[in-house]
Design a protein around this nucleic acid. Structure first.
Lengths: 194, 194
DNA sequence: GTCTATACAGCGATAGAC
DNA sequence: GTCTATCGCTGTATAGAC
């Protein structure tokens, strides 16, 4: 049995790699970057994650798990559907305020260079996000606090893309305001007129 | 005087590099890739573009020029503002149908690893796009064919981000429909109720 | 304007000592 | 579990012949 004092080395590797991928992309970071940041050697990283592909997969699994936990926390709150949407958008806002891109949005851009298991894991993330949004949108339509044309699924897909894109475009401006503004526009367009 | 038979080598380099960046990203392509595709050596590329940074800048200049020409062509058409927005979205659709990402969207993701002049050129592209959209949105509000809350500028920014994001998320699914669906949702939300 | 040849740094990855 | 040492490859870039 390994005596585990927190934080686990594997976990620290994931923390470092996650930030690097979100800032620089999968093809823009290396084992050497992570090793330098953690003060260990590259060889040590290979003990925890055999190769870059496996590290990438582990990154996605953890990221998706945490995101789903955040969605559950929103569900457990007392807000109406509009408030839940605002809380959802705020999850993205947190990422932007950390000067990062969504991990999956970043990898979606680079998907042409990524191993197939990673592509599939990106799809799992977006599917989960859309399914949650679809449910909240349906709730809002039922209780008439939200209004939108088209199906809840279509609108959910539009929203995921729109928020990812708002993060993306804000990057070259290094301007958090630009993201917030777009997120507000998006949510305003869904609130019932009443 | 150099006798220029079409297509110019520099132009062919740009064509190849542009496609590679749009598919794989700036950090996901190399001079070797372009050289192989064109059947020349890497050294030959350095004659036309001293370094990768200069090649990247040239890519952005040409891309932005062409995009602005496409916007002028839409302006010259006879459509109403809603039709112009649809034509604008279709420019993005063309890129998606070519299984590419917008050059500037791709570079926006990787901006953390790019030279400063490239970052500035990305901003120029988005600024131009937003300015055009703002004008069309204002026209639509004046003639009451478009309806939206907030300012035309805010809505323009939201739209640019939303369309970029719709392209981005469609990539891991390799699904053009997903983009079209989101673009339609977005435009539907702007059309006047009348 | 394109070539051969090469420099040199960085990459992901492995073997084997400790 | 981390280290040193190293491998084979690819990356960007340059010098100089043609």
């Amino acid at each position: 049995m390994t005596p585990r004092r927190r934080a686990d080395t594997a976990e620290r590797i994931l923390d470092s790699a996650e930030r690097l991928v979100q800032e620089r992309g999968y093809n823009g970071f290396s084992y050497a970057d992570v090793a330098a940041e953690l003060g260990v050697t590259k060889a040590s990283l290979h003990y925890h994650f055999p190769g870059k592909a496996e590290l990438g997969e582990a990154l996605l699994v953890r990221y998706t798990e945490r995101f789903e936990c955040a969605l559950e926390a929103i569900d457990a709150s007392t807000g109406d559907p509009a408030a839940k949407l605002a809380a959802y958008a705020d999850l993205y806002g947190d990422v932007v305020r950390g000067r990062r891109m969504c991990l999956c949005g970043m990898l979606a851009a680079e998907v042409g260079t990524l191993p197939e298991p990673i592509r599939r894991a990106i799809v799992v993330f977006f599917d989960a996000s859309e399914a949650w949004l679809e449910r909240v949108l349906d709730e809002g339509r039922v209780d008439a606090t939200l209004e939108f044309s088209g199906t809840a699924r279509e609108t959910a897909r539009m929203l995921v893309g729109a928020l990812e894109g708002a993060m993306l475009v804000a990057r070259p401006y290094d301007d958090v305001e630009r993201f917030d503004e777009s997120a507000n526009r998006l949510l305003a367009g869904l609130r019932a007129a009443s």
